[in-house]
Amino acid sequence: MASSTVRPDTRPRSGAQNPPAQDDVAQRLLDSAATLSYDPATEVDWETPLDKDFHGASPEWSTLYGTAYWKELSEAQRKELTRHEAASVASTGIWFEMILQQMVLRDIYAKDPTSAEFQWALTEIAEECRHSIMFARGARKLGAPPYRPHRVAVELGRAFKTLAFGEAAYAAILVAEEVLDVMQRDWMRDERVVPFVRTINNIHVVEESRHMKFARDETRKRLAKAGPLRRHINAFVIAIASYVIVTSMVNKGVYANAGLDQERALAEAEANEHHKSMMRSSCSGLMDFLASARLLTKPALFFYKRAHLI
């Protein structure tokens, strides 16, 4: 019996040329989404009360892991801290996903709605909407307050979502997704992490793999038309966006909310070589991609080094 699933018709219309190459990528992503997607409303256990015997994230990813302060904390304090840090990362993810959705919508505005590329873009936006709701519910279940980026970061994000286009938009999307992807792959496999957070991370990793593929493809495609000046300007813009995103992931308020001395925690987190090393290792593949795209210019490298991404 034939399947009743309706797929977008991206075959060339009579007299038309073959679909562009980007439609091939987009159609594969649409097929993947049709085969493997999740509904967080039913997949995540929202009903079971929070079990405080678990961490909110792998301890090794805590900004204080390996510091003198970390060694002084009780196991309960460490778990409380990682729960607040996980909630902060989730809240930052919501902030950037809202930026991402607006940039993608602006990019496809007035494009051919019958194309697979257009329909994939809307599919990605739909997945990002579900992710944002999932992250919001997860942060609330972790018992954390609403963490928001610093006002300067919020205003820079407002400008970026309005002005960024082409490779600047898609490469910045890729940076945010890649950094989250590596840490969440660790968290979803870690039995020390509270089960509902592991489920959230698994959903996000599976579905974001499609988004990262699309962002890489779009970045390469847009750069194919870029001259040296445009490439250098956008390399700089992408690096600044990356710096703002990464440095906004853990809100400084997590320490006080976890019952720690905020001033001391901030100082030790800033000097924590272990966490810097974790960030650099998580971004090695991303940096290789940016290098291959010739986006690691000297001015850009300054910001990647400041953010401990390289």
Rank of each mutant, 00 (worst) to 15 (best):
G93W: 03
W95H: 14
I99W: 02
L100N: 06
Q101S: 08
Q102K: 15
Q102V: 06
V104E: 02
D107I: 02
I108Y: 07
I108C: 05
A110S: 11
P113K: 01
T114G: 09
S115Q: 11
S115C: 11
W120H: 13
A121G: 06
T123F: 05
E124R: 12
E124D: 14
R130I: 01
I133Y: 09
M134D: 02
M134V: 05
R137N: 09
G138S: 12
A139P: 04
A139L: 04
K141G: 00
G143I: 02
G143Q: 01
A144Y: 02
P145K: 14
P146K: 11
P146C: 03
Y147P: 00
Y147I: 03
R148C: 02
R148Y: 11
V154N: 06
V154R: 13
G157Q: 01
R158M: 06
T162H: 12
F165P: 00
F165E: 15
G166N: 07
A172P: 03
I173L: 13
L174C: 03
A176R: 01
E178F: 03
Q184L: 15
W187L: 02
M188L: 13
R189P: 00
D190F: 01
E191L: 15
V194N: 02
P195S: 08
V197E: 03
V197A: 08
R198L: 00
T199M: 06
I200H: 04
N201M: 13
E207I: 06
E207C: 07
E207Y: 07
S209W: 01
K213Y: 05
F214A: 13
A215H: 12
R216P: 00
E218L: 15
